[in-house]
Amino acid sequence: IRCIGVSNRDFVEGMSGGTWVDVVLEHGGCVTVMAQDKPTVDIELVTTTVSNMAEVRSYCYEASISDMASDSRCPTQGEAYLDKQSDTQYVCKRTLVDRGWGNGCGLFGKGSLVTCAKFTCSKKMTGKSIQPENLEYRIMLSVHGSQHSGMIVNDTGYETDENRAKVEVTPNSPRAEATLGGFGSLGLDCEPRTGLDFSDLYYLTMNNKHWLVHKEWFHDIPLPWHAGADTGTPHWNNKEALVEFKDAHAKRQTVVVLGSQEGAVHTALAGALEAEMDGAKGKLFSGHLKCRLKMDKLRLKGVSYSLCTAAFTFTKVPAETLHGTVTVEVQYAGTDGPCKIPVQMAVDMQTLTPVGRLITANPVITESTENSKMMLELDPPFGDSYIVIGVGDKKITHHWHRSGSTIGKAFEATVRGAKRMAVLGDTAWDFGSVGGVFNSLGKGIHQIFGAAFKSLFGGMSWFSQILIGTLLVWLGLNTKNGSISLTCLALGGVMIFLSTAVSA
């Protein structure tokens, strides 16, 4: 259960009878995928790494000078000259100064003066180019299975845990398959586009800190620079940016070097996208990844198990997540596992009318040892309800109150669905055939309105939902006002479609 501690969480529900669903994975976010007769899966884009970055340009932001020398000439005696002028490691300046009897010249006039100092770069920052084909995306998957609280967001041991898996995709191999043991396998067909235009970005490294910066900004930095990788004795261009020549006297000129420019660069980098280094690879934390999940090989585990009949206890007080759902960790005293956990939410304890829904599909106890633990997640209705676990006299209950409203949740879900469709863009549509167009249209309606429909009408039977949709269509056909007619027709059509397409 990876997503319960992530604030940016998206719930995606598969269409009834569908074998695939489109998701948008982004750094700092987590996606929970639910479908009829399929286990619930949490998917998170953990890291995006980039390798084989080529150094484009380096800037010196802290330097020192040494070996200063000057040469001067009297008027009419030609130009002052130093051998160091031809050495690229030196920074030199030529000027004219007033000369006369007082400073060793027989004539009054302008004399030539040249001053040089050896330039040494102490600290530099480097910009590297990123090729999209060198990106690698690491995705962690977790099935809502027989897990306890100690396994949440624990990325170790996934090789031997059938509840978890790690997959890596690249532009050259965008397809992967996550093996989930008894739950089958989940196929991923990803489109490795981060949403960032790397043709316009460089990877900047300064003092063990890293950013993504725009090329134009990078090339306009007014500091000494050299092109390409460091060859040991780089040729620094624009050395004068960190060196200041003071007022010249008759035979000498003082040279000083400016202080470190790291603070000024940090100020200019305010708002830039931060990154990290992992050995020789860069780690990015921006952008998104679009994936199509193929769920035809994914299956529920323990459908044929019998119900657990022994007593359950709450190991922890049920807690609310950031998303309005409830996490419950229970301990089973029996030894008759594997068995299914009898769990439901009810409005009252007399009729036990089921409300809400299970995020953890078909929760089971897989071990036959005593005191096995299991964590599950529920989506309670707004208002008061009861969490009921167990059967008969051994069942345990917990009162729950959820604040908020169904309308607010439906609106929030619609906005999130619209954002998801905007990110998917043209990849969500198939114009290759008439059937493809209608299929894409259905998927689009489901992406945007599916979660809201589930919130508003999830407790009704599909037949009642179709009746309401048919009534809206009838009202649309018999209303003389054009805008009201079109609105009723659209709402009725969407409702009829979703009542037959969205899983219960």
Rank of each mutant, 00 (worst) to 15 (best):
L141V: 06
D161G: 13
L82C: 10
V330G: 03
S199D: 14
G392F: 09
V255M: 07
T309Y: 04
D348S: 15
K297C: 02
R99F: 08
C308Y: 09
T179A: 15
S372H: 07
Y202G: 03
P75A: 03
R57C: 04
K297F: 03
F497V: 11
G106E: 04
I389F: 10
G392R: 14
V167I: 15
C74F: 05
D71K: 07
I341N: 13
V50P: 00
L107M: 08
K128E: 13
S405I: 08
S86M: 05
S405H: 06
F183A: 06
V21L: 15
L204N: 10
H323G: 13
L284G: 00
V388Q: 12
A410K: 10
E274C: 06
C308M: 12
F285T: 03
V303M: 15
L135N: 03
Q253I: 04
Q131Y: 05
H288A: 10
T120M: 15
L284H: 03
S199T: 15
A63Y: 10
G78A: 02
Y90P: 05
G5V: 06
T406A: 10
V169G: 00
S173C: 06
M277C: 03
P338S: 09
E159F: 03
K209E: 11
T40W: 11
T32Q: 04
L180V: 11
S286T: 12
M295C: 12
A80K: 13
H446F: 12
A63M: 12
T88L: 12
D426K: 15
F218E: 08
Y61F: 14
Q89V: 06
N134V: 05
V12Y: 07
A117E: 03
I130D: 07
A241C: 04
C488D: 11
T40A: 12
L358H: 05
L201N: 03
K294N: 10
P174Q: 04
P318M: 10
R57T: 04
G302A: 01
S86A: 14
A250M: 10
C291K: 06
K316L: 00
S433A: 01
Y305W: 06
K84F: 08
H219P: 00
G282E: 10
A501F: 10
D426S: 11
M151L: 13
R138Y: 05
R252C: 05
D22A: 03
K118R: 15
R73M: 13
M140Q: 00
M53K: 03
C60T: 04
T126R: 04
T32F: 04
M495P: 00
C30E: 08
A361H: 04
G102V: 03
D10M: 08
M277E: 04
Y386R: 00
E244V: 03
C488T: 10
K340D: 07
A250I: 06
K123M: 15
L298F: 14
G442P: 03
T231L: 15
R138N: 04
V265F: 07
T325G: 09
P363I: 04
T120F: 01
N172S: 09
V437G: 00
G337Y: 12
E177Q: 11
R252P: 02
L441H: 07
C488H: 07
A178P: 12
V41K: 04
T267S: 09
P132W: 03
L491E: 12
S433R: 00
G157H: 09
R252T: 02
T325Q: 09
S385D: 13
D393C: 03
R175L: 04
M151H: 09
G417I: 11
S464E: 04
T406I: 12
Q344A: 09
I139R: 02
A346E: 00
A451E: 15
R164D: 04
D161K: 00
E370S: 13
A275V: 15
V50H: 02
Y202R: 01
K38V: 06
S122Q: 05
T360Y: 05
E262T: 06
E133Y: 09
S16M: 08
D42R: 01
D161I: 01
S199Q: 09
I341G: 06
K480H: 13
L471I: 12
L289K: 03
K128L: 15
L223V: 13
S7P: 14
V31T: 15
H235E: 01
W217Q: 07
L293E: 04
T351L: 14
